[in-house]
Nucleic acid binder design. Structure first.
Lengths: 338, 338
DNA sequence: TTGAAAGCGCTAACAC
DNA sequence: GTGTTAGCGCTTTCAA
């Protein structure tokens, strides 16, 4: 910048003013400065600006698994909003590993991000404390809990699961299994308990052996489906905690020759692009990414003052009916009738 | 940091030394300082360090489409290597839009990244010049061209396509179509011309109407398949520029009742996870992401001195045979025999 | 073994 | 309208 100033025969302050379009600089001077900037291919150094202001103009995003298409799609939307506001994105993935979470948070701290969207669903009170202590607001996912400096964006699974279960109920299903995410994760627990509630709400009974854990990945769905198919009295429908899980379930169902939806209905969650390309296309509970991304930004912006308690935000999922759900099969002969 | 220094009763220089484990600091002093750092939950400010050194310890990655599972998988591997070296990642996606490319490069410049992995395959000579001029090395993808400060990582499609075509040839296929990426993109051109070469190498003739463009996405594959199926003398196999395209092709094939591989063989490229879950599972030309990520890092590190001409790196794809390729169907009655 | 001080690039308050 | 200057947090001579 000093170079620019010298070449343009002005002071660095004037260069700064020109760059920021601030204050009144004589147009002739401004133009001369701009000219030099172009010639020299000069770009201001954000480190200096960050250092000066103590704010980096960057939001951090911490994800468990960038390999799950839900997240890249979220990132895409999130980045788009940031770009409009001339903000930067710092991405960290944790692979569901605690050490990586800590490391990610440290990365956020040393880069002086202005806020962290924490979509990796472990409850990291300790780590959040470090963030908040350093005045960086946190927005969590589906924790349904807020605190000073910590806001939360929750998907209304209570309602979503109710809609999904009703859809199955109306198709005649009475025995419905559920495949969750990694047990212990808050997001997984919420989905599971919402499902159980929905079952009760529909007057169906809850069979523990039909509530199985997955890992939010395809493999987990495969394993879960295998275990569900071993149960004595088979369910006629399976609800899953996310689409990857549903795809895994579908795969195992195929492998064992169970036809979908004739013999087994299946509902996913998220509505990733691949729902539509597996066969049959998956009925799923959609979590809209554009809205989700916007909600996070909104929460981040509103939460700037970490001394104030964060807010709770809600997002409604919607049921997208495709071809993996159909009428419940008639009970086979020999099956106990309900 | 000054706070830490005061609380520990030392100077900021000493605190710096303790943090960096450098020089000889008396253990008692060091421990006292560490203690205070812990209590205060202090994290060094990277902006100051970047400012001081002119290096940010960050590599930038510019991608066209984070929604294509190939890229998240690349990012995952890339991030893992960076983490080992205590380096940071700055991610930008371009959506194949020129304005976004320019914007991404600007983001890299203002953040003072130490290098850019440019996986978005447009030939941005102008933009690269800005980077190199500012002493940041660039590593491109499949440009097969190097320059001062610009290295290139290329996948050996010449060999890969030869292997793929030979696989089809041995199965009896003589009429093979190709669906490329967005026409005009360098990566797309390379794949296409490698395919054409491979065809010639196998002694097959090249039918222009069987060489169609896609867009590296599912939709492009769908459209391309539709156009291929309208050709008078249908091919018996289709090779595609990436897996997403192949998935789109597969989808359209299904829709029109063309059985894979009985009536049409299909080969993708990349080997994304979803190859294995569509039905039939896709035969594909795998581009190994861990090796690719490592190669990029290697190129970035070797290219630090932008006054020197970059290097050309090569990566071998391997053919993964699954179930979407099979023996060519016997020519139907009425088809001209070859 | 430790401290003082300069300087990285930028902005803003204050002078002129 | 424009220049001077202090200071953001850190590292690194140079001195002590």
């Amino acid at each position: 910048m000093r170079t620019i100033a010298e070449l343009a025969g002005v002071s660095s302050a004037t260069v700064s003013r020109v760059i920021n379009g601030s204050a009144a600089v004589r147009e002739a001077t401004a133009e001369r400065v701009r000219q030099v900037i172009r010639e020299q291919r000069f770009f201001p150094n954000t480190s200096a600006i960050t250092l000066k202001y103590g704010r980096s103009g960057t939001y951090g995003v911490i994800l468990p698994d960038i390999t799950n298409p839900f997240f890249p799609d979220f990132v895409r939307n999130f980045e788009a909003v940031l770009l409009e506001r001339n903000l930067e994105l710092l991405l960290a993935t944790t692979d569901f590993r605690t050490a990586r979470i800590q490391q990610s948070i440290r990365r956020m701290l040393v880069r002086r991000v202005d806020g962290v969207a924490f979509l990796s669903s472990e409850e990291e009170r300790e780590s959040f404390a470090a963030l908040v202590h350093n005045r960086v607001p946190v927005v969590t996912a589906d924790m349904r809990k807020i605190a000073p400096g910590v806001s939360d964006v929750a998907v209304d699974f209570e309602k979503g699961m109710t809609v999904a279960v009703r859809h199955l109920y109306e198709l005649g299903h009475r025995e419905i299994a559920f495949v969750g995410g990694n047990s212990g994760l808050k997001t997984s627990d919420v989905r599971r308990s919402s499902f159980v509630e929905a079952l009760r709400g529909a007057g169906l009974k809850v069979r523990e052996e039909l509530l199985v854990a997955g890992d939010y990945r395809i493999d987990g769905g495969v394993a879960a489906a295998a275990s569900i198919l071993e149960v004595k009295r088979r369910p006629t429908a399976i609800m899953t905690a996310n689409d990857l899980t549903a795809i895994g379930v579908l795969r195992e169902l195929h492998r064992q020759g169970v036809r979908v939806p004739e013999q087994m209905s299946l509902i996913g969650c998220d509505d990733i692009e691949f729902c539509d390309i597996v066969s049959p296309p998956l009925t799923t509970l959609r979590i809209p990414r554009p809205e989700l991304a916007q909600l996070y930004i909104k929460a981040l912006e509103a939460g700037r003052d970490v001394s104030r308690t964060g807010k709770q935000y809600w997002l409604e999922p919607t049921l997208v009916v495709r071809s993996s759900t159909g009428r419940a099969p008639k009970p086979a002969r020999g099956d106990r009738k309900k």
